[in-house]
Write a protein that binds this DNA or RNA. Sequence first.
DNA 1: CTATGTGAAGGTGTTCACAGCA
DNA 2: TGCTGTGAACACCTTCACATAG
Lengths: 216, 216
Amino acid sequence: MERYDLKARRIPDTTIRRLPAYLRALMVTGQERITSEVLGHLAGYTSEQVRKDLAYFGAFGTRGVGYDAGLLADEIRRILQLDHGVRAVVVGAGRLGTALVRHTDETASDVSIAAVVDINPEVIGRVVDHLTVESLDKLEVLISEREIGMGIIAVPPGGAQAVLDRLVASGIRAVLSFVPKALTVTNPDVFVQHIDLTLEMQALAYFVGQSHPSVR
Amino acid sequence: MERYDLKARRIPDTTIRRLPAYLRALMVTGQERITSEVLGHLAGYTSEQVRKDLAYFGAFGTRGVGYDAGLLADEIRRILQLDHGVRAVVVGAGRLGTALVRHTDETASDVSIAAVVDINPEVIGRVVDHLTVESLDKLEVLISEREIGMGIIAVPPGGAQAVLDRLVASGIRAVLSFVPKALTVTNPDVFVQHIDLTLEMQALAYFVGQSHPSVR
DNA sequence: CTATGTGAAGGTGTTCACAGCA
DNA sequence: TGCTGTGAACACCTTCACATAG
């Protein structure tokens, strides 16, 4: 009964990363119907890009008309597995970790935080929104009991690799890391996304002085 | 006296984005000398990638030996303009905005926050680390007086586009946006980097169930 | 003999242009 | 006629392979 996996086409990462933007754009318009032109404009991409991306998964539009916004949103949610109720564990209940929990609570994003753990005894037991910070020791148990499929790492660089290894060993296949350090993973089925503010800002510095870089 | 601009080669964005990772790796090793192999490993890339990236800007290594870590770090800082003391303004002093100020203070990243502004009278005047939150009205004045070259937008979606327009009108050419919405900019000299946590997590959800995607 | 620097080959993602269908 | 869906052309980035220099 798998719908998309059977096609066995390799989907570009870039396509996957644009789908959530399309989903948001579909939510914003109250419209019933929407063209790839409008959808692309709202999401910040071109109409060709929209059509190509969607074509990897099937033909959801009507020629000469456009797409049914509600139906297309449902398709995208299914593709991204957002209809499965994806649950994540936040490792590290420092300033960043707690901010992440609150953020996710506020924005109904179809991904929920199901557990927060920390290694520091002083922090364990504290309440963050609807969750109590648990011990890092219970990481594997919590992942299993609460059927967690995503890991979010918000610990200092020192302990990050060990945390990642434990997440992977527990069957986690999608990880978001805020650690200011390169982490390695051998299992090719595991996808790790890094968000590194310092690196981001340093790269941006390059463009500060970049007036008129010849053409484009 | 320009060193790199004269070459007029178009540098791939991907290269620019890897340079900060190389810089960090160079800081981590106490070593005097380093090979592209080791540097790549530390930063999470291949040795060929390292050499190609650096070759866009010149020949900094010694054949048969490797690179001088300190010299190479200086080169990268110069390329990224991190030797110029890049200053940024944070627009929006909410939870995220203040967290950004503190984060940047803690991690000496060669990019400093030189001003924080907000539109909310209740927030204006508050002290965040070494800065006092100023009125959004003074945005242009602050950018000019404090020679700010980078903008960081951490406001709700509603006011974000207007903020971006004002930043661009003030001559800002590098912007980091945390706004959960696509922003548009017509000036091709302006570079806008989006960090959107909700989109990031939704994209990751796709990989949660992605076991063994055939080959690779 | 080692590790850099680089043209050439290869691969991946985007844009074009239009055929196909409502 | 209008907009989708898609092969083909294109552009970009990465990997390969080796000439080059110390």
